[in-house]
C-alpha cells in the first residue's frame, strides 16, 4: 500500500515537471508602458497594460508609391535603418537579414521594412536599384524613403534605434544596426544586432514564436 502511494507521488511529480517544461516561450514587450482603464466586451471596467506602439507612417517605397503602415496590417515585420552608400555595418546587416528573408519567403505573415536615413541621396530610384542588386525586390521587403525629420523621429522615438548625421564618420551617417521585430499590434517584441550572426539566428527562432501567439 505504502509503495503504491510512493509510486503515485513520483508519477505525479514527473507529470507536473513535464507539463511545466511545456510552458510556451513568449517574447517580451519593449518600450514604455502604462496602465489604462478600459471597458471589456461586457462593459465591465478593468485595468490593462498599454504598450508602446509604432505610430501611423507614410513614406515612398522603392517603386515611388506612397506606402503607409497599412502595408504591414496583419503581419509581423522586421524593421531596420540603413543607407545604400554605407560601407560599414549595412552590408553585413542586409547580408544577414537576407538569410531571414529567405527563411520566411513563403510565409505571407512576415514582412521586412528598411528605412533609409540618407534623405539626400537615397531617393526611391536609388533604393530600387539597391533592392534589385540585393536580389530581394518585391512587396515583401519594403525600402522606404522619407524626410529626415519623419524618419529620424520614427527611428529614435518609436523603434528605439539611434540614427544621425555625422560629418566625421566615413560615410556621413551613423546608426545602430538593430533589426527590430514588430508584432501584428505594432508593439516592439525584439531587437537583434544585425551584424552578429548569433543574434540573427535568434531572430529566426523568435519570429515563429511571435506568430504562434496569434494562432490561438
Amino acid at each position: 500500500m505504502n509503495k503504491v502511494t510512493i509510486y503515485l507521488a513520483i508519477l505525479l511529480l514527473a507529470v507536473s515537471v513535464f507539463t511545466a517544461c511545456k510552458q510556451e516561450r513568449k517574447l517580451p514587450f519593449y518600450g514604455e508602458r502604462h496602465a489604462e482603464t478600459v471597458k471589456d466586451a461586457a462593459g465591465v471596467e478593468k485595468i490593462d497594460t498599454v504598450y508602446q506602439t509604432i505610430p501611423a507612417w507614410s513614406f515612398l517605397n522603392q517603386d515611388s508609391v506612397i506606402t503607409t503602415n497599412k502595408a504591414t496590417d496583419g503581419k509581423v515585420y522586421v524593421a531596420d535603418f540603413f543607407f545604400t552608400s554605407c560601407t560599414t555595418i549595412c552590408p553585413t546587416m542586409h547580408r544577414n537579414l537576407m538569410t531571414v528573408y529567405n527563411d520566411f519567403i513563403t510565409n505571407p505573415d512576415v514582412m521586412f521594412v528598411s528605412h533609409t536615413i540618407d534623405f539626400k541621396y537615397d531617393k526611391p530610384h536609388v533604393l530600387k536599384k539597391y533592392a534589385q542588386k540585393l536580389g530581394v525586390d518585391g512587396p515583401k521587403w519594403l525600402f522606404l524613403y522619407g524626410t529626415k525629420d519623419s524618419v529620424y523621429t520614427l527611428a529614435e522615438k518609436n523603434y528605439l534605434v539611434a540614427v544621425g548625421e555625422d560629418s566625421t564618420a566615413k560615410d556621413g551617417y551613423i546608426h545602430q544596426g538593430y533589426l527590430v521585430l514588430i508584432d501584428k499590434d505594432r508593439r516592439i517584441r525584439g531587437a537583434y544586432d544585425g551584424t552578429k550572426a548569433d543574434q540573427v539566428e535568434q531572430l529566426k527562432k523568435d519570429i515563429p514564436v511571435l506568430l504562434a501567439e496569434y494562432k490561438k
Binding site: T87, P91, T92, R95, K133, G135
Partner: peptide
C-alpha cells in the same frame, strides 16, 4: 573589406 566582400570573399549579390 569583410562587410561588403564577405567572410569567404563571396561578395554581396550584385552590390559587391
Amino acid at each position: 573589406c569583410q562587410n561588403c566582400h564577405g567572410e569567404n570573399g563571396e561578395g554581396l549579390r550584385q552590390l559587391a
